[in-house]
Design a protein around this nucleic acid. Structure first.
Length: 679
RNA sequence: CGCGGAGUAGAGCAGUGGUAGCUCGUCAGGCUCAUAACCUGAAGGUCGUUGGUUCGAUCCCAGCCUCCGCAACCA
């Protein structure tokens, strides 16, 4: 394997339209921080780069909703995110933002370089334009009727009712969410990065030279490369972002995916205006991207293509992407407020940064999605941090104060058992290193904890409280070794639990502190005075975690109650329009899931006229379709029949859409004759 | 049949073509320096499912089921 002189660690830029939660931490920031702390402790040259991603459509939508500017939104969240990272001990060398001047300049120059080199292709397409607001409309700025389920309010990229993905051109009766007017199609020019031109070298680079990448990362890259890469637009019609720096590009900005990763470069530049290039352009620099699994393609394929196209940059050496963390069995969601927010945790658990760091590493979603529960949080704190690690430290220190006035006693002759114990913990360094070097943080932390287990076992087996009655020399040796193990723990846990390591270091009055000392048995010299014992970790009571669970349940309830605001009433229509619709009642004879479709149910309806087949996108609200059999339902009988998944559907079953999106079919309150009118 | 990842003890996770492992929980015993913590031992598994390759499959191959992600701008 190639030897590198320095390591550049980048962390995914959190999107500044909300605070940071435990999912972000477990997926990206905790592992990245463990890694850089480890490298620093080894004395290696390393940089950790972070920053807020502040452009993109969702931020502009949110700003509009709240009646403030996009800058107000990103200022608010950038501050919260930055402060909470700092307090949590994520040791960025720089944490900046993509709305900074430096970033605008850097990204703009980067685009210009690629443009001048002819690395882009230009393409003109038709997109919706709002003539009143005088701007092109991003997908999310257009709503209309979904062509599949005919629900109103579907967005230009997706219908949230039936989940179908859409293009803005699919919408029936499109409306601009900005002015409410009907948009018109207009030609617009955009620049594309022809990824297909980069396919050949990427195949060689990833599939041949980086077989060591994690299975989830390698697998996804392989599938993309095997499918064949397509050109990707790098600009958008929007007024929030970095202006496209070429003539004839008024009103166009860089697409966020193009602008965001360049933030890694800008932020390095901001930190080291004179020497940033050696971190980005020297083949002896090793670049590592820490990201979540949703970002794999951008960091393994798209961003490297940009860097290669520019020509002077290095490529990432590894991209250790994690899977996702769930919370109490449910997907973490910013919009549903189903999350443990970092800034709130810090307020509610002051001084307990390390507990969360420990739990998130112990349960890190390294190979598959994992679940965070408060019960597990409490158990890991009480049974592992307190009972195993904290308790060992306390035992060693209390005994030393009790028998030797807090001075490190002399090490006498070592017996066979002492030797065996020493040998066992000398191996820990190599083990932890091997695991950290391969990004196996969960196992590495477990190995560090093993050191405390060795300590506890050593005390239990040698029983210094008994030897103290007969043989002080032997007691001295036992405690001498126990204290050396304690000092080793301070080093081994520094990358994982920096706050506790500092506390322990102070208790032991340790002067030297380096990764290379790990495994040594002379960290604390004979006669060295240690400080009074304090508890390294405290128990967490049931009531505390119960309160957190309750808080989650409360937000869930509040969400369900608050999230519902009735939609605005549509404009009045003449009675004749209503009469054009022919709605009838029928009885469900059969109801089955349509194979290979998540959302479709196929109904056989007795409509009093020989029966008809209707396909309806409500399968997710009715996991057991049988419950509908025998029910009477209302349906629109005179829609043009249309094919769904190859089945001709003759009408549409009418459903109410509950606040949580669940669809409930409408039934008459009494049984009526099949085929009667609704009106 | 769009693509990728995952499915192993009550929970969370390792792992390997030849006797299934770790942490927590549970049960029993030991210890009493320690935050009722610690140490030892035990119970607990048709390794998602069906078929194939093999002397032998949890592992390799094929089909199917379930969960997650991407495609489709929340880690």
């Amino acid at each position: 394997m190639k030897e590198f002189k320095r390591t550049l660690v980048t962390t995914a830029l959190p999107y500044a339209n909300g605070p940071v939660h435990i999912g972000h931490l477990a997926g990206v920031y905790v592992p990245a921080d463990v890694y850089v702390r480890y490298l620093r402790l080894k004395g290696e040259e390393v940089l950790m780069i972070g920053g807020s991603d502040e452009h993109g459509v969702p931020i502009t939508i949110r700003a509009k909703k709240e009646g403030v500017t996009p800058q107000d939104i990103v200022d608010r969240y950038h501050t919260i995110i930055k402060d909470s990272f700092k307090e949590f001990g994520i040791s960025f060398d720089v944490y900046s933002r993509t709305s900074s001047k430096m970033h605008h300049q850097t990204a703009s120059d980067f685009f210009k370089t690629l443009y001048d080199k002819g690395e882009f292709i230009e393409q003109t397409s038709e997109q919706y334009y709002d003539e009143e607001a005088q701007q092109f409309l991003a997908d999310r700025y257009i709503t209309g009727e979904c062509p599949h389920c005919h629900a109103e309010g579907a967005y230009g990229d997706q219908c949230e009712k039936c989940g179908t993905s859409l293009s803005p051109l699919d919408l029936i009766n499109p409306k601009s969410t900005i002015s409410g007017s009907t948009p018109v199609l207009k030609q617009t020019k955009h620049w594309y990065l022809p990824l297909d031109k980069h396919e050949a070298w990427q195949k060689e680079w990833i599939l041949e030279q980086h077989k060591e990448w994690k299975a989830n990362v390698y697998g996804q890259c392989k599938s993309w490369l095997d499918m064949g890469l397509q050109p990707r637009a790098v600009s958008r019609d929007l007024d929030w972002g970095i202006p496209v720096p070429v003539e004839g590009a008024e009103g166009k900005v860089l697409y966020v995916w193009f602008d965001a990763p360049i933030g890694y470069i800008s932020n390095t530049k901001e930190l080291l205006p004179d020497s940033w290039e050696k971190w980005w352009k020297d083949q002896d620099t090793r670049m590592i991207h820490f990201i979540g699994k949703d970002n794999i393609v951008f960091h393994c394929i798209v961003f490297p293509a940009m860097l290669k196209a520019e020509g002077s940059y290095i490529l990432p050496d590894n991209v250790p992407a994690n899977e996702f963390l769930n919370l109490e069995g449910d997907k973490i969601s910013t919009s549903r407020n189903w999350a443990v927010w970092l800034h709130e945790y810090l307020q509610e658990f002051p001084g307990k940064q390390d507990v969360l760091r420990y739990v998130l590493t112990a349960n890190a979603p390294e190979t598959k999605d994992n679940d965070f529960t408060w019960k597990d949080f409490q158990a890991r704190n009480n049974n592992e941090l307190v009972a195993v690690y904290g308790n060992f430290i306390n035992r060693a220190l209390v005994l030393t104060h009790k028998y030797f006035d807090g001075k490190v006693p002399a090490c006498g002759e070592l017996n066979e058992y002492d030797q065996a114990t020493l040998k066992e913990f000398a191996d820990v360094k190599q083990q932890v290193e091997k695991l950290l070097d391969t990004f196996k943080f969960r196992d590495a932390q477990k190995e560090a904890m093993n050191l405390a287990r060795i300590g506890n076992k050593y005390l239990a087996d040698t029983e210094p409280w008994k030897t103290a009655k007969t043989d002080m020399e032997r007691t001295a040796t036992i405690l001498h070794l126990s204290l050396q193990i304690a000092a080793n723990l301070a080093i081994a846990f520094e990358p994982f639990l920096p706050f506790s390591s500092e506390k322990l270091r102070k208790m032991l009055a340790m002067s030297s502190f380096s990764w290379n000392d790990l495994g040594k048995v002379d960290l604390l010299p004979e006669g060295h005075q240690i400080n009074p014992a304090e508890l390294l970790f405290e128990k967490i009571e049931d009531s505390v975690v119960e309160a957190q669970v309750q808080k989650l349940l409360d937000t869930k309830k509040a969400n369900e109650a608050n999230s519902f605001t009735p939609e605005a009433i549509k404009e009045n229509v003449p009675f004749e329009d209503f009469c054009k619709l022919d709605m009838r009642v029928g009885t469900v004879l059969e109801c089955t899931k349509v194979p290979k479709a998540d959302k479709l149910l196929q109904f056989k309806i007795d409509d009093g006229m020989g029966g008809r087949t209707i396909v309806s996108g409500i399968a997710q609200s009715y996991p057991d379709p049988q419950v509908l059999v025998g029910k009477q339902v209302c349906f629109v009988a005179n829609f043009e029949p249309r094919k769904l998944k190859g089945i001709m559907s003759e009408g549409m079953i009418i459903s109410a859409v509950d606040a949580d999106g669940r669809l409930v079919v409408i039934s008459p309150s009494d049984v009526v004759k099949n085929g009667v009118n609704v009106g």
